[in-house]
Nucleic acid binder design. Structure first.
Lengths: 349, 349
DNA sequence: CAACGACGTGGGAGCGCTCCCATCCGGGGC
DNA sequence: GCCCCGGATGGGAGCGCTCCCACGTCGTTG
């Protein structure tokens, strides 16, 4: 005998798994009653419930998902969409952490995760087809650009959406974001506290709200410390290591006297760090460095990088929770969550 | 008017999307004929095909997936299972790369990817339920341990499976693996070529085939170079940074005269590297270092780490391809693919 | 010139559920 | 003692598709 998990699971012959009908027959009740038991309806007597439960166990019955979806017009699945281009950009563990959070929350709610990496316009269109085919009950969108029409398109299809991040200050679609402004302020405040006064920043691409917000936080931090803003201390990167390198070179050119850098991502900080090393600047003695993400890269850098941590997994959980609620209860007023960030101090400043 | 993508997509009112029947009526043909056109059957006249295609476009028809699955008993979806514990262990981008490959191949075949992170025994059981609910046509398993019964259980359910990696030398289930033995040999050969003669290794946990295979490659490499094996030069890690650190300390204790280390992962190499630094050994002057994975960590280390690259994305693609073929054509003889690895030389040796 | 395939086509019969209405039963109120 | 009501139950009617059989309509063969 092989081990069968729950009793009596007749190992899955193609000839077929038991149906509701068969369970009903075995329990000596009607189809409707079994359905009620399976779905936890209260309008069933305790006795009947027990009988049905036993029949289910004996037959190893598992409801057929396709039939359920067809009859009930819900799939118990949600899609998580990740633009492939971004997947390469971001500090690598970002999306894995996000997936982890989403997955954990969905598992609790007994829902499936459909992962969609979108790598071309063609695939994006195909994705819209999937949505129209009613494969999912809702959509989670990771990393949207400022001009992305997808969120609105999905809403037009009548599907609930929650985004990770927002496209602009006034985002109409429900979203979960981290406090990027707070991240910038915390970084600058920390640098100021260490006695730095000529603090530069390497930003992300400014068509992304996240980049603008971190830059805004940087400026707010300077203002709060009574430091004058200086556009020569601001250089635009693109969240890549090479972009960070370029931006850093520019900064050193323009303001060789800078004594600190706030990079809007760890990866760009790594790029900046290599340029600083080539330029003979010591970190942190000559130039202090702060990144964002608190990724493994930060821990492994030499010296280890001070970085602003985002609660990525928690963002994933929150997104999933919001979406599930909207699916269950219909559209609320647009909801938004902004989760706090946290400065993790290491030796780079 | 809002933009509608393809013409006439009546934006998704809950009142409902068009059905096969409606398309048939509009095109003036029968249901069966529309189905044939949608599914690309050749037994339709060119003229009819055109008429149906027009009706489809005009109505913005998209076949309902649930109905299809119910009637046709296939879902066009496959599951990718990743044990959560492993997701933390591995060099982070590993699974993202794997997902990327799988996703790309599935997109081409117009199949959906269901991602399942399994983080507990309870979730594993729930996952088996999903399989029984016939939500997917096949399963891809990432990172299996030596004693994992899941692959066999899935086969018992009658579902095609392909694994990433294998549980032992004689793996009965179809799998895709990288040439781990070759990886170890290449690393050792390179170190020997650089004049090193007292080459140590930090292995992975030896209950995983991948760890045993890399160790086997290391030994084969020594033998080919005519070097005597020495068990004092072998230390077991667990694929974590801390594990690498511990193993390295042990090695330095036992053989302070070692002049090279082959670590079975980049992350462990990073751990080893920090211990070497604390011990005042210079890399590569005193001790040369080689890792496995060619992860971002390798590039960012100081000095950048020589590492054996695995074609992770390609493994993902291959797995998906194998699975799709098995779904389409039924079980073949067990198939296995071992993909070549490649040494990426950097300054650490 | 009749018979016969082959090709195109229409549509019935499910697939296995959920929804919902009709039915049944027992107990309490008058 | 009769009627009414509410809880428990059975089962018909789909959900939208695929499968497959049956039915023309031709062109072809003997």
């Amino acid at each position: 005998m092989s081990y069968e998990g729950s009793s009596g699971v007749v190992s899955g012959r193609q000839s077929g798994r038991p149906t509701l009908e068969q369970v009903a027959a075995r329990a000596g009740v009607g189809r409707g009653t079994v359905s009620r038991v399976i779905n936890g309806s209260p309008r069933v007597s305790e006795q009947t419930r027990t009988a049905v439960a036993r029949a289910v166990a004996e037959l190893g019955y598992v409801p057929n998902q396709a039939a359920r979806a067809l009859a009930g017009s819900r799939t118990d699945a949600i899609a998580l969409v990740i633009p492939e281009a971004e997947a390469r950009l971001f500090a690598e563990p970002y999306f894995l952490d996000l997936i982890r959070g989403v997955s954990a929350e969905l598992a609790e709610a007994d829902k499936q995760l459909l992962l969609t990496l979108v790598r071309s316009e063609q695939e994006r269109q195909r994705f819209e087809q999937y949505l129209a085919a009613q494969r999912v009950d809702g959509v989670l969108l990771a990393s949207v650009h400022g001009d992305d029409p997808l969120p609105d398109r999905i809403r037009e299809l009548g599907l609930p959406v929650v985004m990770n991040g927002r496209r602009s200050e006034a985002e109409p679609v429900p979203y979960v974001d981290s406090d990027n402004i707070g991240a910038g302020r915390a970084a600058v405040a920390h640098l100021v506290g260490r006695g730095r006064g000529r603090i530069a920043t390497v930003t992300g691409p400014l068509d992304m709200y996240v980049a603008r917000a971190r830059l805004g936080g940087y400026r707010a931090g300077l203002a709060e410390a009574g430091l004058a803003p200086d556009e020569a201390l601001v250089s635009t990167g693109d969240f890549t290591e090479e972009g960070g390198r370029r931006a850093m070179r520019l900064l050193l050119d323009r303001r060789p006297d800078l004594d600190a850098v706030f990079a809007a991502s760890d990866v760009m900080a790594a790029g900046a760090r290599s340029v600083l090393r080539e330029a003979g600047r010591r970190v942190p003695e000559d130039v202090a460095l702060v990144g964002v993400d608190d990724s493994p890269v930060a821990r492994l850098m030499d010296p280890p990088l001070t970085s602003v941590r985002q609660p990525i997994e928690e963002m994933g959980r929150t997104m999933a929770r919001m979406l599930i609620q909207e699916i269950a209860e219909g559209p609320d007023e647009p909801r938004r969550h902004v989760l706090p960030t946290e400065l993790v101090v290491r030796r780079s400043c």
